[in-house]
Design a protein around this nucleic acid. Sequence first.
DNA 1: TGGGAGGGTTGATCTGGGTCAATGCGCCGT
DNA 2: ACGGCGCATTGACCCAGATCAACCCTCCCA
Lengths: 248, 248
Amino acid sequence: MLQEDFSFVSHDCGDCPIRHRAVCARCETDELERLEEIKYYRSFEAGQTVVWSGDRMDFVGSVVSGIATLTQTMEDGRTQMVGLLLPSDFVGRPGREGAAYDVVATSDLVMCCFRKKPFEQMMETTPHIAQRLLQMTLDELDAAREWMLVLGRKTAREKIASLLAIIGRRDASINSLSIQEKIVFDLPLTREAMADYLGLTLETVSRQISALKREGIIELQGKRHVTVPDFSRLLEEAGDDSDGGLLV
Amino acid sequence: MLQEDFSFVSHDCGDCPIRHRAVCARCETDELERLEEIKYYRSFEAGQTVVWSGDRMDFVGSVVSGIATLTQTMEDGRTQMVGLLLPSDFVGRPGREGAAYDVVATSDLVMCCFRKKPFEQMMETTPHIAQRLLQMTLDELDAAREWMLVLGRKTAREKIASLLAIIGRRDASINSLSIQEKIVFDLPLTREAMADYLGLTLETVSRQISALKREGIIELQGKRHVTVPDFSRLLEEAGDDSDGGLLV
DNA sequence: TGGGAGGGTTGATCTGGGTCAATGCGCCGT
DNA sequence: ACGGCGCATTGACCCAGATCAACCCTCCCA
């Protein structure tokens, strides 16, 4: 899981709070300075598209605040979300020209970016950056494959439970809460976005959430605010053998 | 697509024919020698398991000949294939202890392995190896995400067509044939394995293959030998907007 | 103060693909 | 030449989830 690979302690990488530490954890001071030089911020409003699939993408970076999604769309409009970007997540592919997916802000979003060319040059001269990036990419790959199991073999109910578990765990660990007991969080996605993530329709998502609520597995305050009184029960519903999903 | 990132020309990396070129394309002679030193071969029979998920995995390597699959299994037996390893594909995660998935040989299999520790040490001192590995991992990540669209949003028929297209394209490019015209290849998987890949049952796989055959999209000689008279028609059936899938 | 847009819920019905079950191969060993 | 085993096909039936449709809630702006 991403969070465990390095500490989330605050550090001195300007005002982008978390993840660049991942890239530069072992950097010397002058390397940090070089990163500072090629760093800049971009803000987006909820609903805005960061990049379209196929567009030239001349930066890499990470989410400072807000949520973004990675989606693929077929010509007939069917869409599949392939990744959820939460604060501290990295976006972009060193060594690639175009974006492979649509990146869309689902809330107001601030990203901390590095121009790609100089970032790539740094990578070449600073081996542990490439290694750190390799670790992160392997994590993402594991998450994507975990999600393939969800998409290919789980029932609607299990899919919903899996998604709630992932978001809940992720939220809990960001706020460094223990995961054994009650968990509270806000859903960062509309029912439709959840459906796109899970390969379902929004109606099915809504029905299954209602069912989980009816059965006391979750409690809802409003449409988005979720309380999970017993996390292990949610995990059971998710059909998770391991102690939980990896995605994002 | 993997194949385009480097040339598939034969080279001097011992008798493992292809992919290590990927790892060592820019290696100096002495680096190649160091790779030689930590290299060894392993053979498996069809059906044998290479590693179980969770096992300690102390090597990385690539497939020399034969086919292997990467699968995940839930406690109740539902399984999802998350990757297909064809000759030249890389397996293993530098910097990781255990295997994340079951790796199973579906045919007789020869792998060329490197002991992980020394390989990791080489990575640290030879930056372009980490970079090359990063590229390969990004390719795999793209492939996995492409497959998420297949699993989440495509119909059974589209799933089958997508799989045939991927295998066909891959086969054609290995034999360096053009892809525009007739394509002929052997299915490396049983119906059941195809089902596990596609998130279907083997009955549905069988029915859809029969349907594609009935309609002349594909021809079958025996159960496994496939002829695709018009590849673009197959791609249409796959619902592929892009010029085709990436997976594996 | 009202209406309309964006989300969300719920019901009725339909259907693609799952499930269960029978049958059909080839191939191998004796 | 004969069973038996692993794989594949095909049919009959069923059900989870899609589809279509009505309606609700809440926030925003005229």
